[in-house]
Amino acid sequence: MNSILILGCGYLGSHLANYFNQQGWSVKVLGMRSMHTDYLSESIKFVELDVNDIESVKHFIIPGDFVLCATGSINATNPFNDISRDITDYYLPYINLLNECASKNIGKFIFLSSAGTVYGNASNFAKEDDRLNPLNIYGVQKAFFEQLIQIKHNESKQLPHVILRVSNPYGGIQNPLKNQGIIPVLINKALNGEKFEFWGDINATRDFIYIDDFLKATYLASKCAINEVINVASGTCSTIGEVIDVVQHRVDCKIDIVYKTSANTVVKNNLIDNSKLKSITGFSPSITLEDGIQQIVGKMLYAKE
């Protein structure tokens, strides 16, 4: 039986744990307890610990196993002044993790990077070999971690890996009250008749990938690819305004939106090419934004009954 250790039990880590488990893998998850741990399959072993504490984590890193890094860190709104804390809290523990994984001769290291930030503003659909141009310290962190993986493997020849640049997954089990992900928050506000404060540019473009497509793409890329960087994205883009229109249409109501000007540097155009994903895995994301939003609306309405 194939085995995988997933670091982090947030939105993506928990969904991936259940998906790998459904495919017949032995799955262990390390992380802090949250709403997502309650939805893990009973056959998944969950251990509550600080994934940045390598002394605790290293006992669970087994030679030959896959290790998937889905840990949380700073977010795209953190300012430059947070970088010192970021280096202490995340950079140094990450270096320790890579060293430990390489020394244990793991089967493969899978890193979830961010297609939404490492490319910066893209006038064309960004491909994996395009120049990286992160605009915030979150994107800088992801790009730097990617390079650390590649350098460690080049030096040691003992860190086979896949770097997955993920766009913007949505759907599945999300908490709309935490303001993580514009789509579930918008839908929740619309269903409850609440105002929605939007900080940013309504004309900004984003690539949104439904959780089911993300899970299958990540699973196949993790299995099929070796020492590759792959965009995991829908390959389509929508403006924030278009997302709002779709939500309003599916909920059948007008959302009261209060527009705010953000002081943070944000990516305006985020276009992601997914042709390499299709070439390596044979998989092409198929759930449209309209259908994905409809599924979320249906689930939220059912939960309210």
Rank of each mutant, 00 (worst) to 15 (best):
I6E: 03
I6L: 04
I6C: 06
I6M: 01
L7N: 15
C9W: 06
G10I: 03
G10T: 05
Y11P: 09
L12D: 03
L12S: 13
G13C: 08
G13E: 04
G13V: 09
G13N: 02
S14R: 06
S14L: 03
S14P: 06
S14C: 03
H15E: 07
H15T: 07
L16R: 04
A17P: 00
N18I: 05
N18H: 09
N18D: 05
Y19Q: 08
Y19K: 07
Y19L: 03
N21K: 10
N21Y: 10
N21C: 11
N21S: 14
Q22K: 11
Q23G: 08
Q23K: 14
G24E: 12
G24W: 13
G24Q: 11
W25K: 00
W25E: 02
S26H: 12
S26Q: 12
V27W: 02
V27F: 08
V27H: 06
V27K: 08
V27C: 11
V29S: 00
V29C: 03
V29H: 00
L30Y: 14
G31T: 08
G31W: 03
G31P: 01
M32R: 15
R33V: 06
S34W: 07
S34P: 05
S34F: 02
M35N: 07
H36I: 08
H36V: 08
H36N: 15
T37W: 01
D38S: 04
D38M: 10
Y39T: 04
L40D: 14
E42K: 15
S43A: 15
S43H: 11
I44D: 03
I44R: 00
K45H: 13
K45S: 13
K45M: 15
F46C: 04
F46W: 10
F46H: 15
F46M: 10
V47N: 12
E48D: 08
E48S: 09
L49D: 04
L49A: 05
L49V: 03
D50Q: 01
V51D: 05
N52R: 09
D53C: 12
I54H: 10
I54D: 09
E55D: 15
K58G: 11
K58Q: 11
K58D: 13
K58A: 10
F60T: 02
I61M: 06
